[in-house]
Structures are given as structure tokens and as C-alpha cells.
Design a protein around this nucleic acid. Sequence first.
RNA 1: CGGGCCGUAGCGCAGCCUGGUUAGCGCGCCAGACUGGGGGUCUGGAGGUCGAGAGUUCGAAUCUCUCCGGCCCGACCA
Length: 575
Amino acid sequence: MRWSESFLPTLRDEPADAEAVSHKLLVRAGFVRQLMSGAYSLLPLGQRVWLKVVAIVRHEMGAIGAQEFRLPALHPAELWQRSGRWTSVGEEMFRLVDRKGADIALGMTHEEVFAAIATELRSYKQLPQIWYQIQTKFRDEPRPKSGLLRVREFTMKDSYSFDLDASGLDRAFQRHFEAYRRIFLRCGLDTLAVEASVGAMGGSASIEFMVPSAAGEDRIACCGSCGYAANVEKATSALPAQSDGPGLAAPEPFATPGVRTIEALARMSGGAPAERQIKTLVYLLDGTPALVLLRGDHALSEQKLLDGTGARELRPASEAEIRAALGAGPGSLGAVGVQRLQILADPALESRRDMVTGANRDDFHLRGVDVARDLRVSRWLDLREVKAGEPCPMCDAPLKIEISIEVGHIFKLGTRYSEALGAQVLDEAGASRPIVMGSYGIGIERAMAAVVERCHDADGIVWPLAIAPFEAVVTVVNPKQPATSDAAGAIYDALRAQGIDVLLDDRDERPGVKFKDADLIGFPYRITVGPKGLEEGKVEITRRKTKSSHSIDVRKAADAVAESILEERSFSPGV
RNA sequence: CGGGCCGUAGCGCAGCCUGGUUAGCGCGCCAGACUGGGGGUCUGGAGGUCGAGAGUUCGAAUCUCUCCGGCCCGACCA
């Protein structure tokens, strides 16, 4: 392709307000344009990258025996009502009404539709199956942000596995795990596979593929020593055992005027350090109030509370609701003597003695509380959010917390959707069994943006060869001179003849403009053809990644670049 | 949904507080000239419902109200 005949608009200015580096670069270098909040047009350069990522995904999905489908984005409400998600997903689903008055959804994921097709499976002999598609998803995000990283319309590769039993699911899950590793590696992304909350998707286990980046929205806890890694929504840590004194024969109230916080009680004379306090929170779980107990210096993970209780919805109780439930305001709450409410407690409190907690009477606390003796804990649940520096649960090395972008997520779903939609097969014994499903997703545009977040420098994007919009650019320094333009044209033709994805920058621009644009867009190889070099029969080859360049005989340039590119292409990542 | 900010040429912005010629600037764009290895110089030019509507006023980009759109922080998030 000749640049002079193409629409490849680069900009001098960055978009205002944008925070994410990838977004600024993708706009400036002419890959994307915003249409509205959360909806982006891919320009020719963006589409080229998109197609290359998709090609890698297709290749690796094919390699694990997956078959490609193409499902509608328009879904009948009835299908989502059958799984129960018509109501449970809430406002995140785009909904519309057709001319006949029927409720329609724009698909945000396709468990229901694939499960509906899977009802045609009749025999265990037809299993296992892995089905996938690459298709547009619609999610009415409350806050789209950071360019392509969080949008309302995007492309997802979503696949679904169908097996007779849990061990079959384990195999499909493992295959996806390995395929995802390869996909991201081939795209130039080092991902961290982390244990994650299954969230509203349901199921027994899930793993997220995370790319560490400040532009991310998830925090993950990881151990540099043993490799343990988990989303903070799921992560745990080992805590040193606390040794408590014998305490008192019974809890003893004491006045704490004006003390409303853990810190204030820790500072007060006669108070107690945060790790000797019991933090009492009141939450409404699907509308029912419950007490949530944590050590004073620990923070609640709402996702863990959600996952641990199986509640569909949760929110902190209002002050009025707290008063109605416990008879005191926040700051003086405790679980001692509470009979009617469910009490959920974090294991860090187990068998602690001589603790301090609120007395359910304004401006009073209790000391000498013995958890086992004085509290009627309904359930022990891991509720604590891990903090950086706490010991790894596997090896005790200190954990790090990293901000990351979620580029892929794989779920062991189980039979939730197959039962809801009636997808079952007869097993060897002739018994009907619901198909065991898994679901697996990759956000294509988000992966593209994640690559840019990771691969850029002060001058622009540094695309990995495998997904660069072009593998090379031939920059003609003075295209008006027949000698340079002919030499550049010959190199361009020779590269194309060898199957190299090459762009000819034959624009009538100053050299500096072309070099800046080439760096901004991020072509992995640049061949500079100009009068200075040609006087000696030379052209220059520059690697974007290293900014290193060398002169080479003009007749050898095309072959040298082609050879280097073909060699780099053949790179096939291990797992 | 709560908090903050912003809509003026393709992009980035000034002007608004204190209403008053023909609404400006930089980049980009078009024509021409000089130029030609890291966003060059000069000359000439095109391009605007000042987000929309209503109001106040002799007069509104500017003041008031309503609405729409966008960004950032938080909440939320498969």
C-alpha cells in the first residue's frame, strides 16, 4: 500500500482529558476514533491490527479443536428469562422492544444462545465439544473509560465447552488455559494467570489473564517467590497467629465518648490496638441485614462477601437501618449478645480472646470479649482483602499488589446454563445428564490496547511484529527524485513479492515528518531510502524496538529485511 | 447514581468574569515558491448553526433556565 493513496491520519495533538497512554497513542497515530462514549471506530490501521489479533485467536482456537460459529447479537428476552439473567444482569444489558412489542436484548455474552444450540446434542458420544465465535458484545457500562479498555460495544472471542462430566470440563479448561497463554504471548503480552471470583457468571472456578498496567482496573496479589497470583477479590494471605491473654471472665462495658472509628479507639487511653478490635459492619444481603465481623485493621472485600454468601445483591446498611437492627449508631456496634441476625465472621477472629468491640450502646464499647465464648458466629467466611506485604498463603514470601488489565477470563460453569436451557445427553448407562459447560472470553480491542500500554516509548507505539499493522515501512526521503523513488519502489515491490506486509511512505512530506509518523505508528522495520545513502549505493534499516539502524547495500536490503521478518514470524511460543 | 470539569473550524485552545465592529490563535488543510535525513520557511487562501432550545436585553459565544453530549474521580462492573 502507498501512503500517498491511503487514509492514514496522524495527529499532532493528543485528545484532551484522556488518561490512558494507549488511548492517546491510538488516537494520535490514527488507529481509532471515538463515535460516542464507549463506542470506537477502528480506522484502517486499527482494523489491520484487529485482523491480525483475530487471526492468532482463530489459529490457536483451531489448535485445540474448537469450531467457529457466528451467533446473533439480537437475543429474545425469553432465552434470558429461562436462565434467570433477564432480571439479574440489571441495567448492564441493552434492551429494546421490537415493532410487535417483544422484548429483545443485545447480547452481552452467549451462554444462553450456545446452550440452546447444545440442546441438539443427544449422546455422550457427541462430546466433548468446543464452540466459539468472534462477535460484537454490547454492555451498557456505567462508566466507559480509557479508550478501548472499557467500552460499551466491543469484539469478544467467546468459547464454550461441553462435556459429560467434571473431568472433561477440567480438560477443556486446561486446553483453554494453554491456548490463552499462547494467544497472548503471540500478541506480545506477558500475562499473569490469576485465580478470580466467578462473580455473576456462576460456576466453580475461574482464572483471569492479567496484564500489569497502571491503566488497569483490577488489583491482583502476586507472590514473586512461588508464583501464587490471585485477584484481590479472591486472594488470601497467611497471617501470623496472635497470642491473646486470658482476658476477663465476662465482657466489660466501658465509656468511649465520641469514639467512632477504629483509629480513635486505638489512640484512646484504655482502648486497644486495631488488631485487638472487632470491626462490626452491617450489610444488607438481598435486603436482609447481617453482621460482618473483621479484625479492626482488616478491610472487607465486598466481592468475597458476595461470593461467600451467594447473595445476588449487597449494600452497606444506612444509619437508620443500623439503628433499627442494633439500637446504636455506627462506631459503637458489636455482635455480643446479638441473636436474631446472621453473623458472618472472618477467620482472623477465630478463637481470639480479650478483644474490644462496640457495645450496641452509643459511646460505649466492651473489652475482654472472647470470640468463641461471647459471639454466636453463624458462618466463618474469608472476607478480608489482602494487603501488600502480607505473607503469601503458599510460601510466606511477602505479596505484591499490582494494578492490571483483564484481557481474558475462563470459567468452569458447570450445569447452570445447560439445566436452565435443557441441554442434556444420555450417558453410557442410558441416563440423562445435563452437559457440563465452561465459558472462555477474550476482549479483542482491549487486548490491542493492553499491548499498546505495554509496548510504547516516548515517540509512539512499538508494535510486536505479529500484530503490527504493517511489518515494515519504506520511507522515501525525497520522493520527487526519480532515483530515490525508483530505488524505494523496487525495495517495496521486492518485499511484497516475498509476502511481507509493507507500506510505502511516498508522501511529499519532509523527512522529519515521515520519521515521526513512522515512530508514532510503530512499524517494526523501517527502510529509509534517500539521496545521501544512495550516492554510496546504501539504504538504512531501522528497528523500531531498539532504534538501532545500519546501512546496507540497496540491492540487498529487501532480502535482508524479508529474511529477518520471516525468521521472527516463525517464532512459536511454548507454553 | 454521587462529586468535579468541559462543549467556540478537522485537532488543541483563547475570548465569557465586566454583553457592543466582521469571533480569534496554534497545528492541520488548499494553492504557489524556496526547500529536502528527525514535525522547515515565506506568501496567499478555504473552513464556524460559538452543543441545542427557551428567556433577559436595543443588542448574547458572553447573563439566566432547561435539555443534550463528552471527560475525570468515586460507586458499580461477567
